[in-house]
Amino acid sequence: MDLAATIVLNGLTLAALYFIVASGFSLIFGLMRVVNMAHGAMYLVAGYVGYSVFEPLYDHDLWYAWYAGLAAGVAFAAVFGALVQVLLLGWMQGQELRQALVTIGLSIVVADQLLAMYGGTPRQFFAPDAIFGSTRVPGIGGYPTFRLVQIGVAVAVGVGLWLLLNRTKLGMMIRAGVDDRQMLGACGVNVPLVGVAVFSLGAALAGLGGIIGATAQPLAMGADGRFLLISLVVVIVGGMGSVTGTALGAVLIGLAEQIGQAMFPTYSVVLTFVIMVVVLALRPQGILGRA
């Protein structure tokens, strides 16, 4: 019983991380119709930039080292995302395939330059004392506090995104843009600027995922591919461009991965893809996607 509860909780904490990363991917796709193949690269960039801010501060034993790393990583990813949209993708709006190819080229260059700068050694953040150690969870016993924080962050991101999309003016523009870009522009809204904001926000979420992910597990080369794949699968399963769908997809994939690893370790990867294939066969637009 304990074991089962632990596995489920593990699945949920993993799902929380997946949701944070994939929500940015889904957001960008939802409004801009851009498949951001550089999403994993943005995760990686934020992780490494955050780490270079975090490390010297941590060596001086400063309590805010982790928070500073978090802020730096997220901010860098946000600026990076905005630049990508302004410099590369903005002027080929509508050419979806070309945009996807551009982001693929970008991710290759970024990952290679990161390898040149930081080498192949894995890096890991140490969470600040306030969220380090373990907490007693009823029915399970001691459980790493940071993983619970991870769930908290994901819930905050989810609620925040929902509020942003449904309760603010920017959210209204974004939703209108999804339905009809041209009409939105005709209403006097600066659509390209909304696009930059969305891309920046999506990249920032990848960055947030990068810092959280690099605290929960070591950050190394290859994480970009892994989290790009996770974002793809979560969004394909949950439904393109829907926050709730992304959350549902993340929970399904996170749980499937953990349960699979506990029950049939060698074949756990297959379970994830069986879910994807079944969803594609029955509902090609994803569980909560709009047709």
């Binding site: 979806e96 395939l97 793809l232 969004v235 394909i236 893809f273």
Partner: peptide, 11 residues
């Protein structure tokens, strides 16, 4: 199109 790209990459 891009959906196909994503799905084949995931596969």
């Amino acid at each position: 199109d891009i959906y196909l790209l994503m799905i084949t990459l995931a596969l």
